[in-house]
Design a protein around this nucleic acid. Structure first.
Lengths: 337, 337
DNA sequence: CAAGACATAGTGATCGTTCACTATTTGCGG
DNA sequence: CCGCAAATAGTGAACGATCACTATGTCTTG
């Protein structure tokens, strides 16, 4: 009791207190805010802290305060580069005094949902932002309503902010292509577990209908280049569209390859559009007409709604719009018949 | 929504114990391993746990055990898709009973190092795996040598596993291109803060030297398409190489565009190689000769060395090789003069 | 100068779990 | 049925911080 073997262990608040000649509670006050301490006391604690190189044990603090100050972000698997969204989200969380940890779950939607429930149930984080699709059963099984979950890309059953699924640029794409004389379109969709893929598909169908255009159909894909390639290969010559609207740039690259393999020129015979503004597609000829996404802004706004739900605080949202079409070489006027 | 009582707290181990009619310690034993409990006791606890929907409070557990079971992975900013490496790392950590959290730090190397020190100092994680470059000062300032840090892409001053920086495929690329008659090469390097970029640059210089080839020089870039574009544009006509070895696929795409803009054909006039096997580069013509990386394997092996350092346990490494060249349309025989 | 208000500092309880012991029950040979 | 070891279960302290409350010091004020 008298002499602990203290050397190997990190210093505690009591050791700081003893060294500074004050009570542990005074040191605790010092840690939270330095107001309300006499300057001499403050100086003594300052000295003790730096002499011991003391840092508070956040686990112990969390235990007592029942707050972890941590938010989790659930990332999808291998689908798109989440780094930029993560940055926007992290920045917003920092402003609200939170730490962010990103959790990448191996496996499918069910596995991800399971892991999310585990995280929520063991009190490790105060909130979870899911950028990946979750299973609808998640909502019910939430243990005690303490961990708040916001899903950014799942708007059917759970709260979703919908911004990720804003497909309005696709409407602009089709309208503009129609102005350029295109009459027959084709859409290769992404993985329909994603709200964004569903929204783009819906926007495609509605816009084609509204403008009285023809459609060679919609193929449900999985965001892969192969899905774009296969979809275009599956078309018969006589049903070939003059414009292919792909769910993203990777799908578009597969579609372009299939068109080239069939001896068609892009954009001479067929125009192609993507989504994401992939850096490679900006350079490789033909440079791809795509949708630039402010991923940091998306991440920020998604995190904003989580922070709002957890703390009630409102932060400044990212400036709009978050997406806009960039027209490049892969699109052009429809070839007259 | 159902109303939730403000006082509803998560059930604790003692509540479970009371409901099951046993002591809290018995429940604790149940949580750790179910051996050594009488079947009837076990069944009673089972029932109590599921009735209360109990999950242990991991913060409290961490407090007592002084172990968090968490490892952190520090990710680089916007440079490459870390999701796949993260998966490999997570899988390996799971095998060793750890949870992984990925931390993406806004800012430069210094900011990242600062955040790492903070993480290490507050006892939040047991180890840190840095996939992003760190500042060398990190090593010294480590508070109490408790948190172990392994840097996967920083091999100058800190421990590094080096695998990420294995540039041997680049040697193979140059040798093969030399066999195809190429004599004059050019290299656009990546951000030299990365060990991988340095290794590729070194391998380029050494191999060109060893084989007695000519070099149009090395341009230090930043992994961006623009750096590839600008590097090729900066070349005078008379110094134009017949083969451009780019640090990665994005750089290669910029280089290809610059070559095409100058009226050169790829691979007719100039062969181009990349690195990463970007999916888009597989489809867009000309498909790019690149280096396929087993990113999951890289992540796994990086995590292995962290797990080894933290626990002493050896896990099964990923099967080798982790990288191999895939030859595609962007490379071909040198055009005879 | 006494008394109350305010500023500052201290004491002990507490968060939920595991650790280190101690206590009780069970099993089994003689 | 006894005795003793092994199996099983219980008791209270400890982890390192904050919270709620109490205690002391200092400054006004009538």
């Amino acid at each position: 009791m008298t002499e602990r073997s203290t050397e190997s262990r990190r210093p505690t608040i009591k050791q700081v207190a003893r060294l500074a000649g004050v009570s542990h509670q005074t040191v605790s006050r010092y840690l939270r805010s330095r107001d309300g301490l006499k300057p001499t006391t403050l100086a003594r604690i300052d000295a003790a802290v730096s002499e011991l190189n003391y840092r508070p044990n956040l686990v112990a603090r969390s235990m007592r305060t029942r707050r972890t100050g941590r938010l989790a972000v659930l990332l999808p698997t291998m689908v798109f580069n989440p780094a930029r969204m993560l940055h926007g989200a992290t920045e917003a969380a920092h402003e609200a005094g939170f730490t962010v940890e990103a959790i990448s779950v191996i496996g499918d939607t069910e596995a991800r949902t399971e892991r999310m429930l585990e995280l929520a149930g063991t009190g490790q984080v105060e909130g979870i932002l899911a950028l990946a699709p979750l299973s609808p059963r998640g909502e019910d099984q939430l243990p005690h309503g303490e961990t708040i979950i916001v899903a950014a890309d799942f708007d059917d059953q759970m709260r979703g902010i919908g911004e990720l699924a804003d497909a309005s640029p696709l409407v602009e794409i089709i309208e503009r292509l129609a102005e350029l004389g295109h009459r027959r379109f084709f859409h290769v969709a992404g993985n329909l577990q994603f709200a964004s893929a569903r929204a783009r598909k819906t926007a495609y169908l509605e816009t084609v209908e509204r403008l009285g255009l023809e459609s060679a159909g919609v193929v449900d894909g999985d965001w892969s280049g192969k899905s774009g390639y296969d979809a275009v290969r599956s078309l018969a010559d006589e049903e070939m569209p003059t414009a292919v609207v792909a769910a993203n740039d990777v799908v578009a690259s597969g579609a372009i390859r299939a068109l080239v393999d069939r001896g068609l020129d892009v954009p001479g015979d067929v125009s192609v559009t993507g989504w994401d503004n992939n850096e490679v597609c900006l350079y490789l000829p033909p440079s791809l007409t795509s949708v630039e996404i402010n991923l940091e802004g998306m991440g920020r706004n998604a995190m904003l709604s989580l922070v709002k739900a957890v703390t009630g605080r409102d932060l400044e949202p990212a400036p709009r719009p978050l997406q806009h079409v960039i027209w490049r070489e892969s699109t052009g006027p429809a070839r007259p018949r």
